[in-house]
């Protein structure tokens, strides 16, 4: 029953193959939803309404259910996010070891507060919950890249890698 206006998407042949393979790995197709969303995230850069509609169609569930699942999890890249998402850990073990300073530095450098997206749409800055990297705090992730012991001095160089 979702709106007609959504443009229709298709997976690339390779992604389609991966999806089919995944379907064989679980006794029920529904279980492929989370991995499929990762495929869609990779294929289209983020998960948006059209991506959710595609997932619904491929799995055979309602678009509402896909939305329900997507919105439960925080790590999928959404269409409201910047091109790159910076996750800076702020949970207690990191907070004890400089997370706040790192977060402040990032906010200053990017000119946004946590939870916001830079004006050019390049970065979203988000607080992460304990990244299981308390031994290397302060730490952060930019999409799939993890950075340990991050200092303010390194930030320019690191951020420059993400065009």
């Amino acid at each position: 029953m979702s709106a007609e206006t959504v443009d229709k998407r298709e997976l690339s042949p390779e992604a389609r193959k991966e999806f089919e393979w995944l379907c064989g790995r679980y006794p029920r197709r529904r279980a492929v939803l989370l991995p499929l969303l990762r495929i869609i995230e990779r294929e289209f850069g983020c998960i948006d309404e059209a991506g959710m509609a595609l997932a619904a169609e491929l799995i055979g569930i309602s678009a509402a259910e896909v939305k329900s699942v997507v919105s439960f999890y925080t790590h999928y890249k959404r269409d409201t996010d910047g091109k790159y998402v910076i996750w800076v850990c702020n949970t207690l073990p990191c907070a004890l070891r400089g997370a706040r300073e790192l977060t402040d530095a990032l906010e200053r450098k990017l000119g946004v507060r946590c939870g916001q997206r830079t004006a050019d749409g390049r970065f979203s800055l988000k607080k992460a919950e304990c990244l299981a990297s308390c031994d290397t705090a302060p730490c952060m992730q930019i999409d799939d890249d993890h950075y340990d012991h991050v200092t303010e001095q390194q930030l320019d160089e690191i951020l420059a890698r993400y065009e």
Partner: peptide, 16 residues
């Protein structure tokens, strides 16, 4: 469906 999580949980429909 329910969307979001925790205290933000709310009932909703698919977009549109």
């Amino acid at each position: 469906v329910q969307v979001h999580r925790g205290g933000r949980n709310v009932i909703d429909l698919a977009d549109g």
